[in-house]
């Protein structure tokens, strides 16, 4: 994880694939093709992908798709999956209604 994420590297052009319309993030309904294209748009980290597409930011908070997104980004950007930092862990760990979140005791 100490390796520099070289953004100037050439990852080649976006080539449409047969599975591009497959849903990856079920909550936000983001497809494989959208994630692949986002990498070509310059989103090389999981954090950037999340903010750009909202995948992993829906109700389940990436519980199901985090690993899948990671492997797609790694495959597309040519990075080893182990070198991609997972998304930041933040409270609340589960979806909480605002009225509960605000009711601290």
């Amino acid at each position: 994880m100490n390796e520099v994420n070289d953004r100037s590297r050439d990852i080649g052009p976006f080539i449409p694939g047969p599975d591009d319309d497959m849903i990856i993030c079920r909550c936000e309904e983001i497809t494989r093709g959208e994630i692949r294209r986002a990498v070509h748009d310059g989103m090389f980290t999981i954090t950037e992908i999340r903010r750009y597409l909202r995948c992993g930011m829906g109700l389940c908070q990436g519980q199901t798709c985090a690993k899948l997104v990671k492997s797609i980004v790694a495959g597309e950007s040519g990075a080893a999956p182990g070198t991609l930092e997972p998304a930041t862990s933040r409270a609340p760990m589960r979806p909480v209604e605002m009225q509960i979140l605000a009711d601290e005791m």
């Binding site: 933040r90 409270a91 760990m93 589960r94 509960i100 009711d103 005791m105």
Partner: peptide, 22 residues
């Protein structure tokens, strides 16, 4: 009772009975 976060000095927030307890 869902633990929603662990903070500095081992402070824990728990979502419980419609509140957040520390």
């Amino acid at each position: 009772s869902t633990v929603t976060g662990i903070y500095e000095d081992k402070e824990v927030t728990v979502q419980r009975k419609g509140h957040i307890e520390h």
